[in-house]
């Protein structure tokens, strides 16, 4: 066991030494890996920040129920009571035609034309209505639509208007964006494997002679491929650490103007602070991808190199 660990450490240090001996190509490779990893990280931080933003609004949609104009006040009250008792509804408020007209007048103040037209009509054209706020569980878009359909069936109800307000639209867009981000991240991970795999392939061909001789003196496949697996893992590890550095740098660059913006909207901490756990995850994923790339490359190319 001790020898086994010593052997691994020896390969690790030998590989680190090899990386140091060719600084330019090492830095090149590491930067390519870092930038490839940086893109998914940036997308993640953006999605996370946007989610924090949308959570902070805590907005809940409203449903406006317009009753038929011809129904009596009693029927209207009956409908109101029924709506109020609906299990998905937290709050319901009855708006009489008079209240609606008053509100309308306040809102359209200064617009002389509208007032003239109202006066011309002679009577109040607005129907009685109920403004409803669904409970938290029903505040999701699909449930809201179901609730809306259900309410539309009621006798005496003319129409139901659902205001999926813009927080919902924002959340829906965010969902699309995060899916696209995930897809893009998957593609970039694949790209990373190809980049590292290709680098390992070049290393294998550069060390062809050494591999042949090692096999000649009885080196097993496991022994021969070990340094290349270390190469891949180290590329991934170091590349992801550089990537984190770039990410934190980019975040601090954006944070200041973004926080100024947030202050204007009486909000705070718009940008997602990357946690230690997330950093660890990036490093682990980076190393794992590097290792996978090396495995893939080694499986493709090492078998072909046999002593002659």
């Amino acid at each position: 066991m001790g020898t086994y660990i010593a052997r691994h450490l020896q390969v690790l240090f030998a590989t680190l030494g090899d990386l140091r001996r060719t600084p330019m190509s090492t830095i090149n490779t590491l930067l390519i890996i870092a930038i490839t990893l940086l893109l998914p990280c940036l997308l993640y931080v953006t999605v996370k920040s946007a989610q924090t933003l949308s959570d902070s609004w805590e907005g809940r949609p409203q449903i406006s129920i317009f009753l038929k104009k011809e129904i009596s006040d009693d029927t209207a009250t009956l409908i109101f009571e029924e709506v109020k008792l609906h299990p998905s509804i937290e709050l319901a408020e009855f708006v009489t035609p008079e209240q609606a007209l008053a509100e309308f007048k306040v809102l359209s103040k200064g617009e002389a034309n509208l007032e003239q037209e109202l006066a011309f009509l002679g009577e109040n054209p607005l129907p009685p209505s109920i403004v409803v706020m669904p409970d938290k569980a029903s505040a999701k878009s699909e449930k809201l639509i179901a609730l809306k359909d259900e309410l539309s069936q009621f006798d005496g109800i003319e129409s139901v208007r659902l205001d999926l307000d813009w927080t919902d639209r924002f959340n829906a867009m965010l969902l699309v964006f995060s899916r696209v981000a995930m897809l893009l991240s998957g593609l970039l991970a694949l790209g990373l494997i190809l980049i590292v795999g290709n680098t390992i392939k070049l290393l294998i061909f550069n060390r062809r002679h050494e591999i042949e001789i090692t096999k000649l003196v009885g080196g097993t496949d496991t022994f021969v491929r070990r340094p290349f697996l270390y190469y891949g893992t180290l590329f991934g590890l170091l590349g992801s650490i550089i990537s984190l550095g770039l990410l934190l740098g980019a975040a601090s660059l954006v944070a200041q103007p973004l926080n100024q913006l947030a202050e204007l909207y009486q909000s705070n901490g718009l940008i997602h602070q990357v946690t230690a756990l997330e950093m660890l995850a990036v490093v682990l994923v980076g190393s794992l991808l590097g290792w996978l790339a090396a495995r893939w490359s080694v499986a493709q190319h090492l078998r072909d190199i046999q002593p002659k």
Partner: peptide
């Protein structure tokens, strides 16, 4: 043990490393 006409030595490694290779391969302590 095989001795080759063209020696098959690793020219980027020291004499020590060349000779040690069969032992490194079997994981003998340093």
């Amino acid at each position: 043990g095989v001795i080759f006409q063209d020696h098959k030595l690793l020219f980027d490694r020291s004499v020590f490393d060349n000779v040690a290779l069969p032992l490194i391969v079997i994981g003998l302590p340093h």
